[in-house]
């Protein structure tokens, strides 16, 4: 398999993942995107191993290794700090999950006499679960960190590539 074909395959896989994410949200099924993403990564990994015209020598391997390690160290510190903060929020919550007093009707439904506006209530008239909302925001934050780490990796990659002479030129340069 040629390397350019692999890049096309990676682009297609990315589009499929976006579609899976949309469907996952649409059907409220988190397993769809979770399993789909893992399957996509495995597929790309197997395809990458079949690329015949890639040339990775020891210098390129060293650049990739150093960039990956530096990114991982930054990611570990930031992710751990954020997780600690989230754990403190979770542990400090008065009750989990949070419920308002139920009325006489269906269990879990709020007392209508409290005049809670519909905008506060979730679908079906239930009180939104504050714990779930926090976890949802934590998910957004994780995604944002992952995207930031991608750019950080590119930055480290450029730094180490420059350090190990990736863009050096000489008289033999075209």
């Amino acid at each position: 398999m040629k390397q350019n074909f692999f890049y096309i395959l990676a682009g297609i896989a990315g589009l499929v993942e976006v579609c899976l994410f949309y469907l996952s949200v649409e059907f409220s099924n988190p397993m769809l995107i979770t399993i789909g993403f893992i399957a996509g990564v495995l597929l790309l990994y197997m395809a990458y191993r079949r690329v015949s015209d890639r040339q990775v020598d020891e210098r390129l391997a060293l650049i990739n290794q150093k960039a990956g390690m530096a990114t991982f160290m930054v990611f570990w510190v930031i992710f751990f700090a954020t997780s600690l903060g989230s754990a403190v929020i979770g542990l400090g919550a008065p009750r989990f999950p949070h419920h308002l007093p139920s009325g006489k009707g269906e269990p879990g439904l709020p007392d209508r006499s409290m005049n809670i506006p519909d905008s506060v209530l979730g679908s079906g008239g239930h009180i939104p679960d504050n714990g779930s909302i926090r976890l949802g925001y934590f998910g957004y934050m994780q995604l944002a960190f992952l995207f930031l780490m991608f750019f950080l990796y590119v930055g480290f990659r450029v730094y180490y590539a420059r350090k190990y002479g990736e863009w050096e030129t000489d008289e033999e340069q075209d």
Binding site: Q55, D57, E58, R59, L60, L62, K163, Y164, G165, E166, E168, D170, E172
Partner: peptide
Amino acid sequence: LGVTRQTILAIEKGKYDPS
């Protein structure tokens, strides 16, 4: 040697010490 041209250039310029 089975490496990239850029690696030979980096070694010659002292930017990279080979294994």
